[in-house]
Design a protein around this nucleic acid. Structure first.
Lengths: 260, 260
DNA sequence: CGAACGCTTGACACTCTTCAAGACATGTGG
DNA sequence: CCACATGTCTTGAAGAGTGTCAAGCGTTCG
């Protein structure tokens, strides 16, 4: 308590001032909000840093994860490859997201870097051991995992019983809300897909041709404006939200309205 | 330790002998494996039991859950209703499954009884307070929640990029493995859907007409044999597994094989 | 320059949804 | 007992939305 009061401006987890933390803005899920100064001391010598190049495997299903920590920069995917070739991306890891799981040796999914990825955390064994002695830290970890669980279930709703365009719109809204500050929600905002058309397809359970068609279709409909091939401007975010949530425009809806 | 040695045959959580626990066979996820005799004493006076009739709401999104505990009997759904009418079931709660979440006041999904459902557990507040003082119990809870998270992500793979028949087959396999003892896996087994066609549709992101058609189609193909309208016999479980995992039969596959 | 890669676009086939009608089972009231 | 209503399930026909296969464009990199 006293230590924290004295150096309130410093985040000993990163060893820099809080202002330097690269994931500070988005960091509502990672270890940053989980590990405090008091927690740190026994773990100081078990810090792990890694970086990966685009396309590099961070871990394969069945293999142990390099650490339990936070994605500091870059985008990674959590995915599983089915019995014959098709891949399903089940989660996108963005800066600030938690990586790894307490008390879990092996990952049950593949982790792969999309861009250059930098992660920082602690060696799994050391962290687990420390965790078992700190009920408070455990409670905070539990909240993160539960949030991940709710997110995964909510994602089922995004993918289920929706047209390709609705799925895409839903994902674009998700990205827009995460990449833009809350104050700019109402105005024009810019969304960086980062992912290729094929990766988008694996995420949304579509083919890359369908993704391409609808991205261009939404551009023709003035819902998107291309900046580069993977960066789009969204003139009216609310219109995108309506599109994601049911705005069928009259015909071709895959969902059914119950009741009269 | 000594207490447990003396009454090893008794499960003080239920107040009966272990043999009487209705969820004993399937109970690998609920509080049963989480709460031990030593844990119990401070919670003894906060036990909660509830039962629900078919169709009854256990909790609505935003409302608190009645308790944190285990489903003792019956089937319930965790679902979310989208903006206009469509419903997505994100999880089926079966006997032995954990109900509720530590340190969570409100559910983010709707919970609804499909059959008559009996749950038993502890008042959320009392349980949370106790949990914060027991790192060991927390660790076991964490494993359960993480397993749920993995299951939710695996379910994304079942629903994504699969035909209606493959989805149905995948779910039937899931039920078959859970409703039959491991020893009978290879032989004929019986699967009780319990859910109506419409509930199946909400679970698999289909329409109830499509569910009906494929259930009958699989019957014509000798993959299923109807016992009642919601109970089927599976003559060859392995055939069902193959069907779920890619058995396209030659044409009309929705998945794509990568590579040459 | 050619190869590799990501992206776009077209034509066609197929699955699924949608709309509609009817079968079957169950329960209620005359 | 029948008529009737209700809810669940089945089945048919038509159309919409994607998947599939194929060809071509643009960029990057050796």
């Amino acid at each position: 308590m006293r230590k924290r009061a004295i150096r309130a401006e410093r985040n000993t987890f990163t060893g820099k001032t809080v202002a330097d933390c690269p994931t500070r803005g988005a960091c509502r899920r990672g270890l940053c909000i989980c590990v405090t100064d008091e927690d740190l001391d026994p773990l100081r010598h078990h810090e792990v840093r890694r970086s990966y190049v685009p396309g590099e495997r961070i871990a394969l299903s069945g293999q142990p994860l390099p650490c339990i920590g936070t994605v500091e920069s870059g985008i990674a995917t959590i995915s599983r490859t089915q019995d014959r070739g098709t891949r399903q991306i089940v989660r996108l890891l963005q800066p600030g997201d938690l990586l790894g799981r307490p008390w879990r040796r092996a990952s049950r999914f593949d982790l792969e870097a999309v861009t250059r990825v930098e992660i920082r955390g602690f060696a799994p064994g050391a962290f687990d051991q420390f965790l078992s002695q700190s009920p408070e830290l455990q409670a905070r970890m539990m909240r993160i995992v539960q949030r991940d669980l709710d997110d995964a279930r909510a994602w089922l709703g995004i993918l289920g019983r929706r047209t390709a365009r609705q799925k895409l719109a839903g994902f674009l809204v998700h990205l827009a809300l995460r990449q833009n500050t809350p104050s700019s929600k109402r105005d024009t905002c810019v969304v960086d897909l980062t992912l290729s058309r094929e990766q988008l397809a694996d995420l949304l359970s579509l083919t890359f041709e369908t993704v391409s068609r609808h991205l261009n279709g939404m551009t023709r409909d003035r819902i998107l404006r291309p900046v580069t091939r993977r960066v789009f401007e969204v003139p009216d975010l609310q219109a995108l939200v309506r599109l994601a949530n049911q705005d069928t425009g009259g015909a071709g809806c895959r969902t059914r309205v119950s009741g009269p």
